[in-house]
Amino acid sequence: MIEKIIIYCLLFAFSIQRTDSILAFRRFNIEISNHLEGNKQLMVQCRSGVNSTQVVFLAFSGVFKFPIILDFKTLIWCNLWKGPDFKQHVSFDAFVGKESFIHDVCGSMKPNVCFWQAQDDGIWVRNNPTGDLKLMYKWNT
């Protein structure tokens, strides 16, 4: 019986190493900041496979924070609408629970934040620890 348990544990450990699951059960945060000119509001709603946030209206320099605990299939996508008429919209993957996304888009696991910033020309991401922003998405009209 003990041998079977050891074999199952080894198989489980091996399967973890073969995926991005080393990230599993770690805490992470998605932050979306409103930097639209002219004190325009930003409407935000994010979703995962099972949860959806309430629609939030952010004032200029406001920040929407969405804490998550990573699992094997974490995917968070967000919809943003640009005020004042909220006709300009963008939908994007704000977080994908893969090491490549965390490093290539979010900049790394430190400080455990994938930071997005809405500006008049589009949605920017801070994709490195120094805080430089990179334009990722343009507004749909």
Results as ranks from 00 to 15, higher is better:
Trp139Phe: 04
Lys138Arg: 11
Trp116Ile: 12
Ile68Lys: 08
Asp71Cys: 01
Leu80Ala: 02
Ala94Met: 09
Ser61Pro: 05
Met1Pro: 00
Arg47Trp: 04
Ile30Glu: 05
Gly97Asn: 01
Asn127Phe: 06
Lys82Cys: 02
Glu3Thr: 12
Val55Met: 02
Cys114Leu: 06
Gly49Lys: 15
Ile123Leu: 14
Val113Asn: 11
Leu135Lys: 01
Ile102Phe: 01
Val90Tyr: 08
Asp121Arg: 03
Met136Leu: 12
Lys65Cys: 02
Leu36Lys: 05
Phe64Lys: 15
Lys65His: 04
Glu99Lys: 15
Asp20Leu: 08
Asp93Asn: 15
Thr74Ala: 03
Leu42Val: 05
Thr74Arg: 02
Phe25Asn: 02
Thr130Asp: 09
Arg126Gln: 14
Ile102Ser: 02
Gln45Arg: 14
Gln117Phe: 00
Ala24Met: 00
Tyr8Met: 01
Trp116Asn: 04
Asp132Thr: 08
Leu80Phe: 07
Trp81Lys: 15
Ser15Asp: 03
Asn51Gly: 03
Leu10Ile: 10
Ile2Tyr: 10
Phe66Ser: 11
Trp77Cys: 12
Leu42His: 04
Val63Cys: 06
Met1Glu: 06
Phe72Gly: 07
Val50Ser: 00
Val63Glu: 03
Trp139Lys: 12
Asp85Trp: 14
Leu135Thr: 09
Lys134Arg: 14
Asn79His: 15
Ser91Cys: 11
Val96Glu: 13
Asn34Lys: 11
Ala13Cys: 13
Phe95Leu: 15
Val105Asp: 06
Gln54Ala: 15
Gly38Asp: 07
Lys98Asp: 08
Gln54Ser: 14
Leu36Ala: 01
Arg26Leu: 07
Asp104Tyr: 11
